[in-house]
């Protein structure tokens, strides 16, 4: 309602006094100057990393500028082959973990969200409260026994401890995100389907799921970025270098080289961030909507 009222009010508001124009323009220029400066400071390290990855080793620590005098692509070739396995091996491992996590989150979280948003059941408020609290639960409290459990299954150095929990909707953040989204879908659609004889599985699969594609996209993109960047649980469950994901390989490389091969290190860091950059470029809309509704990272 306020949205429709606001323009009318703005239009009927008295026009601004002309003498306030000039200071307004100065204000605007100052504002943009501040913002551009901030943006530059924020992005400088990232841009410098990309430029430095294309520089010869000895220039990296001499040249703070972003000007590329001679292009050196050797860092990439060198970094790609400098690990125990070719870097593609770690990219594939990370991709497997990420793909599993995305599928798990999409299936399990959407089911739970449908129940919380559309079904009435005993203890609903309690369960919903528990779900909200688990969003804020630190992973450390469960990691030790969880490790004991999974190691008894013989799952250490497999991707299962990283993927299976996602099929059990343990990323409650996404359940909440989807609940919020489903609440915005008109209930009349469900009721019309029910009158036509559809049960909950059909309403869920044929009405709700197709309508909640934006929420699913947000979930998929966030799951990708978080799992791709995840370090703590991968560090704990994957100790065999053959099973290393990108962050683990990168960290091992930095530690063994102890700062001798920064060109290659920065090059592989750029490679490891590339998928996130691309997702950011193409999926920004969904990311912004996701954090705006639920406040993720």
């Amino acid at each position: 309602m306020t949205d429709t009222l606001a323009p009318a009010l703005v239009r009927s508001a008295p026009p601004g006094k002309p003498r306030r124009r000039a200071p307004g323009n100065v204000r605007c220029i100052v504002k943009h100057a501040v913002l551009i400066l901030c943006a530059l400071v924020m992005l400088y390290p990232i841009l410098w990393m990309i430029v430095s990855s294309l520089r010869p080793e000895d220039v990296i620590f001499r040249d703070p500028s972003l000007i590329l005098r001679d292009l050196e692509t050797g860092n990439y070739a060198e970094g790609w082959g400098a690990f125990a396995d070719p870097f593609s091996h770690y990219l594939i491992n990370s991709t497997i973990v990420v793909a599993g996590a995305i599928i798990g989150n999409l299936v399990a979280c959407s089911m739970a969200a449908y129940a919380f948003a559309r079904l009435e059941f005993s203890g609903k408020r309690l369960w919903f409260g528990i779900m909200l609290v688990t969003i804020m639960l630190p992973v450390h409290v469960i990691i030790v026994p969880q490790y004991v459990l999974f190691s008894q299954f013989g799952w250490v150095n497999t991707f299962l401890p990283l993927i299976l929990p996602k099929f059990l909707a343990t990323d409650a953040f996404f359940v909440f995100l989807m609940v919020q989204f489903i609440r915005g879908i008109p209930r009349e659609l469900d009721e019309a389907a029910r009158i036509d004889g559809a049960g909950h599985p059909r309403i869920f699969a044929q009405i709700i799921l197709p309508l909640m594609v934006p929420a699913l996209a947000t979930t998929a993109i966030f799951t990708f970025i978080w799992t791709w960047n995840d370090f703590f649980s991968q560090l704990i469950y994957l100790t065999d270098p053959d099973m290393y994901t990108v962050p683990l390989a990168l960290r091992a490389f930095v530690d063994t080289q102890a700062g001798t091969n920064w060109g290659a290190t920065l090059a592989m860091s750029v490679v490891s961030l590339l998928p996130v950059f691309l997702l950011f470029l193409f999926g920004q809309r969904f990311l912004l909507r996701g954090i705006a509704t639920t406040g993720g990272k």
Binding site: P45, I46, M49, S52, I60, I225, W228, N229, F231, V246, P247, L250, R251, V254, G259, W262, T265, L266, S269, V270, S272, L273, V276, F280, L287, K297
Partner: peptide
């Protein structure tokens, strides 16, 4: 989006 990644920690070290 990338502040928590190993790559950025490596960058910070540099």
């Amino acid at each position: 989006l990338i502040g928590g990644s190993v790559a950025i920690a490596v960058l910070w070290r540099t």
